[in-house]
Amino acid sequence: EEALLREILDDFPEARKLNDRIREGDTDPRLPLQLGELVATEVRGRQETLASGLVQALVGFARDHAVRAPVDGDVLNLSLLVHGDQKEEFLDAEAGLAEQVDGVDFRFGGPLPPYSFV
């Protein structure tokens, strides 16, 4: 979270300016709210972009897929119906993605019954 905040402050001069004013002791009660809203909006956008990229990268290994609402602070809740013949290719792709995406923990469960596709 700290690294992401620093990245957002580097990428957005408005956020950096608000943060600097707060750190310098500006007592305007709107500043933390404005900064929080700006950061939250950017975090959501980045999470949506990441989730979309992960779906695109993994869906090619699946006969079917289902995207559900993320839970417990997750970025993505994705079910993939992967044929047994493609299991190793899928696991290799997952491992590659986990290495490429810094600061994100991947949790995979399976094989599970295909209850998401009934």
Rank of each mutant, 00 (worst) to 15 (best):
E2G: 00
A3C: 00
A3G: 06
L5I: 10
L5M: 08
D10G: 03
D11V: 03
F12P: 00
E14N: 02
A15I: 00
A15Q: 00
R16Q: 13
K17A: 02
K17F: 01
K17I: 02
K17S: 10
L18S: 05
N19F: 13
R21I: 05
R21P: 02
R21D: 07
R21Y: 01
G25Y: 06
T27P: 09
L33C: 03
L38P: 05
L38T: 01
L38C: 02
A40G: 11
A40C: 06
T41D: 06
E42C: 01
R44F: 06
G45S: 08
R46G: 09
R46M: 05
T49L: 11
L50I: 11
A51G: 10
G53W: 11
L54F: 07
V55W: 05
Q56I: 06
A57K: 09
L58S: 08
G60F: 02
F61C: 09
A66C: 03
A69V: 14
D72V: 04
D72H: 14
G73N: 09
D74V: 11
D74F: 04
D74Y: 13
D74M: 13
L76K: 13
N77W: 11
N77R: 15
L78T: 09
S79H: 06
H83A: 13
Q86L: 07
K87E: 11
K87V: 08
E88D: 14
A93N: 09
A95G: 15
E99D: 03
E99W: 01
G103K: 07
V104L: 05
V104Y: 13
D105M: 14
G109H: 10
P111N: 07
P111E: 05
P111D: 05
F117R: 06
